[in-house]
Design a binder for these strands. Structure first.
Lengths: 159, 159
DNA sequence: AGACTCTAGCTGACGCGTCAGCAATCCAGC
DNA sequence: GCTGGATTGCTGACGCGTCAGCTAGAGTCT
C-alpha cells in the first residue's frame, strides 16, 4: 500500500467511527433507540402487517441470525416487538411482530434520525463529493462481496 | 436529504461494517489480536521505550480514557502490557509499558494486517477513486470535528 | 424406515464501547 | 491555609456483535 492509500484507510476508519458514535448518540437522545434497534424496527415497519420471519428479516438487513436473535430478545424485553403464532407449514418457522409501542417508537425516531444523518453526513458534502463517494463505496462493496463469497485463493471446492 | 444522499449514507454504513468485520477477522486469524488491541500496541510500539501515560495515549489514538482503561485491563490480563512505576512529579500519573510478548505480538501482526487492509480496501480502488475518497473523508472529518466541538446551534458560551 | 444433510432458531461466553460516577491529585484565587 | 474546580485514572452496568454449539424440523437418498 502506498502512503496515500494507508492514510485514506486510516481516515475511513476514523470518520466512520466518529459518525457511528455521533449519529447513534443523536438517535438515543432523540428517541431512546439504538442504531441496532432502529434497524430492526425499520424493517418490520416496512413489512406488511409489521410481521416477519427472523430468517427473512436477517437476510434483508444483512445480519447473522444470531445477531438478530440477540437483538430480538432485547427488543422484546423493551416491549417493542413480540413473538406471534406462525401459521406456516414449516414447523421451524417463527414469527415476530411489531407492537403498537414499537411502531410508535419507530415513527417518532424516523424524522430526527434522518435529520441527524443529514447534519453529520449530507450537509458536509457537495453533490460531486457524494457522487464520487458513492462510486468508491459501490466498488468497495462489490469487491468485498466478491472476496467474502470466495475467500480461498485456491480453486473452488467442486466445480 | 435526497434519495442519492440517503443511498450513499446507507452504503457507507454497510461498507464500513463489512470492512471492519473482515479485517478484524483477518487480524484475529493471523495474529490473535483484536483491532482495539492492535491499535494500543501500535501506539506503544511507536513510543520511545515502549511506555506511555494513559492520558497521552488516549489523546493520541482519539479514545475516551475509560475506553482505554478497559482495553489496558484486557491487555494486561493477556500479558501484552504492564504497569510501570512512574517517576513523574504528578501523583496522578501512571505509566504503562509494552511487555516483550506485547512487542513481539505487534511485530508479528503488522505485516499481515497491512496486507489485509490492502486486500479488502486498497486493491479495490483506482488511484482516482482513492483521491476522491480521501477528499470526501477529509471534508467529513473537518465537518464532524467542527460540529462536535460546538454542538449547540446557539452562540458559544462566552466569546 | 433409517441415515445424512440442510435450514431455522436459539443460547452462553466473551470482548468491545458508552455512560455515570468515584477517588486522588493538582492548581488558582482568596 | 483552604476551598472550588479541573485533571487523571479507574470501575460497574449495560447494550452490542462474534463465535461455537445446540435442538428440532425438513428434504433426500437408499
Amino acid at each position: 500500500m502506498t502512503e496515500r492509500q494507508l492514510r485514506t484507510w486510516e481516515n475511513l476508519q476514523e470518520v466512520t467511527e466518529l459518525l457511528r458514535r455521533e449519529v447513534g448518540r443523536d438517535l438515543w437522545n432523540d428517541a431512546k433507540l439504538s442504531e441496532a434497534e432502529f434497524t430492526v424496527l425499520a424493517h418490520l415497519s416496512m413489512a406488511a402487517k409489521g410481521t416477519a420471519r427472523p430468517s427473512e428479516c436477517a437476510r434483508a438487513i444483512g445480519w447473522d441470525s444470531s445477531r438478530l436473535a440477540h437483538q430480538l430478545r432485547r427488543l422484546e424485553k423493551r416491549g417493542l416487538v413480540e413473538k406471534a403464532a406462525s401459521e406456516a407449514a414449516d414447523g421451524r418457522a417463527s414469527l415476530i411482530a411489531l407492537t403498537d409501542e414499537g411502531r410508535t417508537a419507530y415513527r417518532r425516531a424516523l424524522g430526527p434520525h434522518l435529520r441527524s444523518a443529514q447534519k453529520w453526513f449530507a450537509d458536509a458534502l457537495s453533490d460531486e463529493q457524494v457522487n464520487n463517494l458513492a462510486d468508491a463505496l459501490e466498488t468497495l462493496l462489490r469487491h468485498g462481496s466478491h472476496l467474502a463469497a470466495a475467500p480461498a485463493p485456491t480453486a473452488e471446492p467442486r466445480a
